[in-house]
Nucleic acid binder design. Structure first.
Length: 418
RNA sequence: GUGAGUGUAGCUCAGGUGGUAGAGCCCCUGGUUGUGGCCCAGGUGGUCGCAGGUUCAAGUCCUGUCACUCACCCCA
């Protein structure tokens, strides 16, 4: 029979790799609640319109990257390409948006984008998503970035850079865009790459983070958004910076940081790694403030901000870290001892020890090889003699020391023999 | 959507000019009638991505096709 394989850009995760994901989730559950965030669960599938309206109809995500299907009644549904839209929808739909206060949530799960896969980019990928609603204060932006920093440290990640920028608001951004367009139109065509020649009319902000060298030269002379901010935005940005400085976050102002989703306002940020292992996709997290979004999706005018971490990319940085190991491995060398082995193992598990029992009697040599391979700390040997005397041989696989232990003392012995 | 590269054992890969498949690792067994990791010996395992074509003969040459990888665009 022909085999059926997984579809392009989707992955099966097995140990040891899967352990990295467990680790990231575990640390998220540890760190985020320290700041008052609670975990939520929301659907993976939403009405297509939700994404078109929140992310922006002209963005690449909506234009060419969405997994969109018609359901059995012909309604257009889309697998979420990012989490924020769904969280905002749920926030409004639950009625929470209409009650005042500060709301803090985090969630994680799969996202879907129809792109050509490459290193650090999958069609089904996973994000850890954090959202906060309510505060308009710059301290909220600052603390959010601080929490992200804290979380990444908790994962053991160092040498990261936080790029921070402000995109202005509805008032000042259009003014800046005008200036930028004016500047770009007087640049000789041959000084820009083909993409940017097109972009300077369709999406001028994107020219700012083009990677082509000659474009970057042009951009160096271009007007900077942070020089064109209105008073309010400028003050906001300065206060965010104050928090970043007092928190000793390794941050840099990147005036060319433009995010690909339309809903961002004011603060935006991105965390990048220069680790060789991560490939060309160096951004491991990104986010910002999206003050108009809740209203835009039919809710009240509640400010919001948040970020997402790309788990696949972080996994590349963590690679090979987490290896599961056992506390004991029960080697059964006599058929009659199989059931006693199960019983013994069960008692140890009730004390919190992790271990496995062999389900078939084999040579002791084969068992020890296996125990060693599974990186078990000890091997419990159960054969004919032990069965008769109601004892078990406990061998410490690190030291090689071994001793006979009565069944009723096994829990205690395992504690000592570590 | 664009470009480049790669498909031979579970994994990493050898296989000038065509002559009907190899190594290392892994796994299993034995060397030690019940003692692992090192060493030694042996063993399991392959429709050479798939389909056509050329040829007495194709892993090797030609055509097509599929898959994967990396990069661009863009994003986490």
């Amino acid at each position: 029979m022909a085999r059926i394989n997984k579809i392009k850009g989707f992955a099966d995760l097995f140990p040891p790799e899967s352990n990295l994901y467990v680790f990231m989730e575990e640390r998220a559950r540890k760190v985020f609640p320290l700041y008052g965030y609670e975990e939520i669960r929301i659907p993976v599938l939403e009405k297509t319109e939700l994404f078109a309206r929140s992310i922006g109809g002209e963005t690449d995500i909506v234009q060419k990257e969405m997994y969109t299907f018609a359901d059995r009644k012909g309604r257009s549904l889309t697998l979420r390409p990012e989490a924020t839209a769904g969280v905002v929808r749920a926030f409004i739909e639950s009625g929470m948006a209409s009650r005042e206060g500060v709301y803090k949530f985090f969630t994680f799960g799969p996202m879907f984008r129809y792109e050509r896969p490459q290193k650090g980019r999958m069609r089904q990928f996973h994000q850890i998503d954090v959202e906060m609603f309510g505060p308009e204060h710059p301290q909220a932006d600052g603390e959010l970035i601080l929490m992200l920093f804290n979380y990444l440290q908790e994962l053991g990640l160092n040498s990261l850079t936080f790029y921070v920028n402000s995109l202005g608001c509805k008032e000042c951004r259009p003014q800046f865009q005008e200036k930028l367009v004016a500047f770009l139109t007087q640049v000789p065509e041959e000084n820009l790459c083909a993409d940017c020649q097109r972009r300077r009319t369709t999406n001028p902000l994107r020219v700012l983070d083009c990677k082509v060298e000659k474009c970057r030269e042009v951009v160096r002379e271009a007007p900077k958004i942070t020089d064109c901010l209105c008073e309010e935005c400028k003050k906001h940005f300065e206060q965010v910076i104050t928090i970043l400085n007092q928190s000793q976050i390794p941050w840099e102002h990147n005036p060319f940081l433009v995010r690909g989703l339309d809903y961002y306002q004011r603060t935006t940020f991105e965390v990048v790694s220069f680790d060789a292992n991560i490939g060309a996709q160096s951004a491991i997290a990104g986010g910002g403030r999206y003050d108009g979004l809740v209203r835009n999706l039919g809710g009240p005018d509640v400010p919001g901000l948040g970020f997402a971490c790309g788990m696949e990319r972080i996994a590349l940085l963590l690679e090979g870290q987490k290896q599961n190991s056992l506390d004991f491995f029960v080697a059964i060398i006599a058929e009659q001892a199989l059931n006693a082995g199960i019983e013994l193992a069960q008692r140890l598990r009730q004390k919190g020890y992790r271990g496995e029992v062999s389900f078939e009697a084999k040579s002791l040599k084969a068992h020890l090889r296996q125990a060693n391979k599974k990186k078990s700390r000890t091997c419990l040997i159960l054969g004919e003699e032990e069965l008769v005397q109601k004892v078990v041989q406990v061998k410490n696989l690190q030291t090689g020391l071994q001793q006979s232990v009565a069944w009723e003392d096994i829990e205690q012995a395992l504690g000592i023999l570590f």
